[in-house]
């Protein structure tokens, strides 16, 4: 049968940085085709298709549609596969090869992680589950 795609509304203006992304304005309606764990969602709307940051999208079906995982305060061990320098004060700066504990996997691709008792946000794109093959 037909695949029913979830409908989302853009909550901000987003200007694309590559041809594979979409530019949207606040209030634009989009269908989400694929949700990547790194926070980029493949969307279609108004005859266009491309990637959008999940952080700019809210579900039309209402906020009771819970997809977000619960935090895991014990932490799940991940390895940093690409270094990142914090831009905002609630982010962590880490180098390639560092080991961290993932506390909360947020859909927007910015996960809450802990290292040396310090907690902050880090791009999930630069993390890999410890022991996993790339």
């Amino acid at each position: 049968g037909p695949v029913l795609l979830q409908t989302y509304r853009s909550i901000g203006d987003y200007q694309k940085n590559s041809k594979y992304e979409l530019s949207v304005g606040t209030g634009d309606i989009l269908e989400v085709v694929e949700k990547s764990e790194n926070g980029w969602w493949f969307c279609q709307g108004d005859g266009k298709r491309g990637w959008l940051p999940a952080a700019y999208l809210e579900p039309m079906d209402g906020p009771d549609e819970i997809e977000e995982q619960e935090p895991n305060y014990e932490g799940e061990v991940y390895t940093v596969v690409k270094g990142y320098e914090s831009v905002q004060e609630d982010e962590l700066s880490l180098g390639e090869g560092d080991t961290v504990e993932v506390i909360h996997k947020l859909l927007d691709g910015w996960w809450v992680i802990r290292r040396d008792e310090v907690t902050g946000y880090f791009p999930s794109m630069y993390l890999q589950k410890a022991g996993a093959k790339p």
Partner: peptide, 22 residues
Amino acid sequence: SIHQPPMNPPPRPPAEQRRKQA
């Protein structure tokens, strides 16, 4: 391929949503 997500981390949530999360 177009079906590969961008190589850079997506931007953080716009300010309005960050307030809602807090």
